[in-house]
Design a protein around this nucleic acid. Structure first.
Lengths: 217, 217
DNA sequence: ATAGTAGTAGCACGATCGTTCGTGCTGTAC
DNA sequence: GTACAGCACGAACGATCGTGCTACTACTAT
């Protein structure tokens, strides 16, 4: 049995947040309970609670933890691809892979929390959730805009509209995969992304996408 | 003050379910509380509870009530349009209108409950929610299939894929309208539906869609 | 060796959860 | 007029909620 060390606090805190994020992806951020969380981690309610000033603080910290996990699992891999349409495609595929890999047990953490808070009145938690969502959509949009600048997308293409439609397919896949226990919805989303991208792509854009596919195939 | 009549039971039950569905669209079906519901309706917890054998029964009844409202507000209006691509378009527009009209205060009831239960283990409530979702997607799919039979959609068009992509746009609009308090996402979805339908439509299909648009001015 | 600090546990609080029970009122049926 | 069914109520149950307060332990710094 390891005794608590000087630096165990941060370690414990991390473990709490990891478990909290996992639980929240299933039961929602409001569904998290200090008691359940403590039981899950084999510690006392009060011991756990002492790491946070309030449940709201815990929720906010959980979101930040999940954001970091999202960056590591979805954003970072895709950012190694060249900016433009290839990266845009990579972002979509990265998200679908993240869903397929069950990075969070209940599906995408942010999809779950967005759905949980979208009808609720404003508040710190809701605001942070909305901010995360906005940031992700912004990434898609900026990547699409860059692709258009590179001449890979039609000049008339609306980056925000394209981001909206891509994100819609990704979100729908996330829901249906879990709701119907059917991973084939990931391929439906891939199909949708492919259709949408090639429809908006210029010849140069299609070439860029094609060369990636060849490099991988 | 009205005294209870012989038939007041059903009336009260209906009022309970109406309020329960409204609350659930905001806070989720698990977020419903007998106490809050009773307070909201100005009656006692026990009096309310007596109408249902358990909270789960209340949840199931709430879903059935919401399903009826959905039929009235979304399905029925669209079913007066001629079968095929016109009806498919009408179903999408009907859904967007239903979101815009705030039929449920927290956005689409079924989007909210689907998101709430998609990561949870099976159970009667989850199963019913999944069934509702499947039925709606099935309606979109069958309508698309019919449109293809009518020669309004390309022979190579996959009705289920099309239904998935349309539904994705509708769902995304539902989330973002409320999350960002920005009704313009409804137009984003309209744009997506239009793009998708015209891309899959034959000349005959486009004519059918066009004549409707003209008829409406 | 001593004081101080970080981390955890124990215990208790008021509130609220879903649920049960007994009671009373009202309108209908005999 | 009396019995009954339908409906709602208040009180109370054990459980769990978020949140404090106190005490103990292990480590660090002096």
């Amino acid at each position: 049995m390891t005794r608590p060390n000087r630096a165990d606090g941060l370690e414990t805190r991390r473990a709490i947040l990891r478990t909290a994020a996992d639980l929240a992806s299933v039961d929602g951020l409001e569904g998290i309970t200090i008691g359940r969380l403590a039981t899950e981690l084999g510690m006392s309610k009060s011991g756990l609670f002492a790491h946070f000033g309030s449940k709201e603080d815990l929720q906010l910290a959980t979101i930040e933890h999940a954001r970091q996990r999202y960056v590591d699992e979805v954003l970072s891999p895709a950012l190694s691809e060249p900016a433009g349409i290839v990266r845009l495609q990579a972002l979509c595929e990265s998200f679908l892979s993240y869903v397929a890999r069950d990075v969070f047990p209940g599906g995408c953490f942010f999809a779950a929390t967005m759905a949980e808070y979208d009808g609720k009145p404003d508040g710190p938690v809701r605001d942070l959730v909305a901010d995360c969502q906005e940031q992700w959509m912004g990434t898609l949009e900026r990547t699409a805009a860059r692709a258009r600048e590179e001449g890979q997308l039609r000049p008339g293409c609306d980056p925000r509209q394209l981001a909206f439609e891509l994100e819609a397919a990704l979100l729908a896949a996330n829901w249906y995969v879990h709701l119907h226990h059917d991973a084939s919805f990931l391929d439906r989303a891939r199909q949708a992304v492919h259709t949408r991208l090639t429809a908006e792509a210029t010849a140069r854009g299609r070439t860029a996408l094609g060369s990636v596919r060849q490099r991988r195939g």
